[in-house]
Amino acid sequence: MILHIQHLSFSYSETPLLRDLSLTVEKGEIVCLLGPNGSGKTTLLDCVLGFHRTFSGSVSLCGKNVLSCTRQTLARQAAYVPQIHTPSFPYTVREVVLMGRTAQAGLLGAPGKEDRALCGAALRRVGIEALAERPYTSLSGGELKLVLLARALAQQTPLIVLDEPTSSLDFKNELLFLDTLADLVKNDGISVLMATHALDHPFYFESKGLPVRAVMLKKGEPARVGAPSDLLTAQTLLDVYGVCASILETNDVNGRSVKTIAVLGREEKAE
């Protein structure tokens, strides 16, 4: 078991945002966190990454309680791909990916030869070695996300945590990113915990035959957990988002059956 969350509750104010949430992420499994804005997706990720430390319940990564871990230990268990990266100095792509090796260097150490080799491998794995010497601030949104993924990969953690990784990408880049992620899960046995607004994402992973579960969060309500096809029904969408939707089924270019969601209107507009 890579990630084990037991009876997690968290609140910013009087009303709890996350209530008695229990969840596991197994090796080589993808867990998609879904839910409306403000339902606690990022908050949950922050609890897992040790940014929030005032929750009740327990969160353990690879058997270690996150609250008793140092930043270094945590960074060896879980890598993080942020939703928004505020550009810093124009470092080269290679220099940014090399930062993924921080947890392996000491307080005053710097990455060595082995770290550089791993960073090169991460760049190749994600398919962006051609960008290696470019200033990362000059990249497109899609390329930048792949750089951040390569950096997370260079961290060599069993778990990668992603916060809405494709929210700013166009169709093709979104698919490229998801394909890369699916490949990492399938061939490298990496586990993925990702928050996303796109309900098609869990369906996408399901159509690829990968072990995937969806977690539907709604503020102040217990989380609903299940396989995408079981959980993501018109009824759930109505309950959680207040929208009328229809689950459509079609085939992808390889002829595999894939589901997608069509939103038909707001609940209050319905007759």
């Binding site: 993080y80 990266h85 505020t86 921080t102 260097a105 005053l108 710097a110």
Partner: peptide, 24 residues
Amino acid sequence: FLSRWRLNVLSMGDREAAALGLDV
């Protein structure tokens, strides 16, 4: 001078630097 490589990581912002394993 001894912290020079960590300066790169620090400049990614507190949150990302921490997630990368730095005691910010």
